[in-house]
């Protein structure tokens, strides 16, 4: 399923004019700080609204100014991993992961939460509060929470910033494995070329609120690390 984004206008203090697609797999939204990457991601999620344009995934239209469609975030069916995770401090790991599963019968919800805890390897941490977790553990909870409602696309805003290198490379690898196991498409905001090299299949380069380059990551960024080579692009499409 392919995400197609095309919008323009002032969002808050920022002037955006972007058009790109994310064909599935892992797409990196790459650029220096101040390029409008996070804002673009927020517009895709519905947390901000651009003045004009259209955003669609496959056949479903999330936003179309002309047709007066602007789905609220809760109806877009997307997962969002925030830069500092934004885990609910008053809920434990289970409560956080199950937060998006409201409306599911309790037994199904608990089964799904257990499945996700298993997926991200957090067995034994069910009752911990976010304040008692390490940076890496928090990140895994944030991923599991966003994946719980089975989003059609996972949006990640600089998920590896503020982590030291050793943990960062490990988490990067984990994310890649998660991608392979769930097959969920990802749109990843990053300013780090190494992250693009290791993770991305498709690359969208952003500068000053404009798309300057778009294409296969392997062709735009030479010298890709073997980690990314191991996944073929097709296993992210669904």
């Amino acid at each position: 399923m392919s995400l197609e984004v095309c919008f323009a206008g002032r969002v808050g203090e920022f002037d955006l004019d972007v058009a790109f697609r994310a064909p599935g797999g892992i797409t990196a939204l790459f650029g220096p700080s101040g390029a409008g990457k996070t804002l673009t991601l927020r517009c895709v999620a519905g947390l901000d609204s651009p003045a004009t344009g259209r955003i669609s995934i496959g056949d479903s239209v999330l936003f179309d100014r002309k047709a007066e469609i602007d789905l609220p975030p809760r109806e877009r069916g997307l997962g969002y991993v925030f830069q500092h995770h934004a885990l609910f401090p008053h809920l434990d790991v289970e409560g956080n992961i199950g937060f998006g599963l409201r409306g599911m019968p309790r037994s199904d919800r608990m089964a799904r939460v257990a499945e996700l805890i298993d997926l991200v390897g957090l067995g034994g941490f069910e009752g911990r509060r976010p304040s008692d977790l390490s940076g890496g553990e928090r990140q895994r909870v944030a991923l599991a929470r966003a994946l719980a409602p089975e989003p059609s696309l996972l949006l990640l805003d600089e998920p590896f910033s503020g982590l030291d290198d050793e943990i960062r490379w490990r988490l990067l690898d984990e994310l890649l494995q998660l991608h392979r196991r769930t097959g969920v498409a990802m749109l990843l905001v990053t300013h780090d070329v190494e992250e693009v090299r290791r993770l991305a299949h498709w690359l969208v380069r952003l500068r000053k609120g404009r798309v300057v380059d778009e294409g296969l990551a392997a062709e735009l960024i030479p010298g890709r690390a073997p980690a990314a080579e191991r996944t073929s692009r097709s296993d992210g499409d669904r």
Binding site: A45, G46, L47, P72, P73, R74, R76, L78, G79, Y80, F82, H84, A86, F88, P89, F99, G100, R102, G103, R145, A146, A148, P149
Partner: peptide, 23 residues
């Protein structure tokens, strides 16, 4: 209260009244 928590709840399928009471 950091607004990001409320935004996170929004992306997880919650409506405004529910977010007010639960977050």
């Amino acid at each position: 209260v950091d607004r990001t928590y409320e935004e996170a709840a929004r992306t997880l399928g919650w409506g405004e009244v529910g977010i007010f009471l639960a977050v």
